[in-house]
Nucleic acid binder design. Structure first.
Lengths: 196, 196
DNA sequence: CGGAGTAGTGGACACCGTCCACATTAGCTC
DNA sequence: GAGCTAATGTGGACGGTGTCCACTACTCCG
């Protein structure tokens, strides 16, 4: 039932963004009275937080898919570059064809869902973790100077995120598809240049 | 009275973001009954749109101030670079010490308030217009290759905007001030590099 | 001077988040 | 197996919000 509420909330978020995930509507979908939700969530905000985390997870999955679809062994210079690029395109694609979920993913600043500074054991499944892995591979592949590596994920993330926001829900959202793609392309090129 | 509502809405937006600009509260501040607002605005959305435009204007003003504070004649290479830089720092500063207004400025995608692709007569007072002017000066100062100029404002805007969002209301918002400044600095450096 | 349009009022409705008291049901203990 | 306990869902209510309708007062102009 808790899962049902989250699923309903996620569907609401998909078509309508964070504001559309309204508690009563979610319970209506599940077929239960509004107050029942309060047995599982303290707040509407708590429900939204879980939905938000799910949206972040979906974004991370898309990024992982994109990375996985690039052939080439780990450490291969060109493959490593293409994997970083795949992360960017996955980010853009997610923002474009799931605008509601994308907006929801960044609606709440629940710090540790995107990636933690301390890399614990195992691969970090968060979006930021994926980006970090790609950059680390670029260092291992001798494409990126190790001295430039620390903290580089943040400007890169910013660049991609900014373009996704502006061309997604933002003021650039009424661009034609080809214009948008060209801008995204240019953004990725710009990132590629900063690595050298 | 219309102006009063807008001013009230702007104050609400300043402390609480777009969701805080609630029609009834604005009328309460002005000292009038809720329905009176419907004589001046069709919707709460229409009120918010005007407030949003005002927030954009305030951002543009900050950028203009930053640019104006840089000494040096038009076309001077180093001054031109510093003016572009001033735009970026003004953007960051606005996002940081007016988070509510910053969020409000981008809450609605009312396309033409940021800047229009067709540059009509006179200086464009929008944020995008300011950025364009700075880039144009860099071309005139022979710092930026004219061939790279067209459309360059968008990736640059994205980069700055992304950092502002992520470090402002976004997931990076609990950084210390020095960490944040360092990231912003690095972002601006990255932009400076792409010009060459 | 009187009619017309305009700005503000009063009341109402539907929707939302949330709180309280209650019913039902499951599980565990004696 | 009986009875207490904790969990889960229900019903009703309250305050807040956006919005609509009918109504009033005031101002301005012919």
């Amino acid at each position: 039932m808790r899962d049902g509420l989250v699923a309903a909330g996620l569907e609401l978020a998909r078509s309508g963004g964070p504001d559309a995930v309204v508690l009563r509507e979610a319970t209506r979908i599940v077929g239960v009275v509004p107050n029942a939700a309060y047995r599982h969530f303290a707040d509407r905000d708590e429900l939204l937080a879980v939905v938000c985390a799910a949206a972040i997870g979906e974004l991370a999955d898309r990024m992982a898919e994109g990375v996985a679809s690039v052939p080439g062994a780990y450490g291969d210079p060109v493959a490593a570059g293409e994997r970083l690029r795949a992360i960017g395109t996955a980010y853009f694609a997610f923002a474009h064809d799931e605008p509601g979920l994308f907006a929801t993913a960044f609606a709440l600043p629940q710090q540790h869902a995107y990636g933690t500074p301390d890399e614990a054991a195992g691969t970090d499944r968060t979006p930021l973790g994926r980006l970090r892995a790609a950059l680390d591979e670029l260092v291992d592949a001798d494409v990126l100077d190790p001295q430039r590596r620390p903290g580089l994920e943040y400007p890169i993330w910013s660049t991609v995120h900014g373009m996704a926001v502006l061309s997604g829900q933002g003021p650039l959202r009424e661009l034609t598809d080809v214009d948008r793609r060209q801008l995204e392309e240019r953004t990725l090129m710009m990132i590629g240049e900063t690595l050298r």
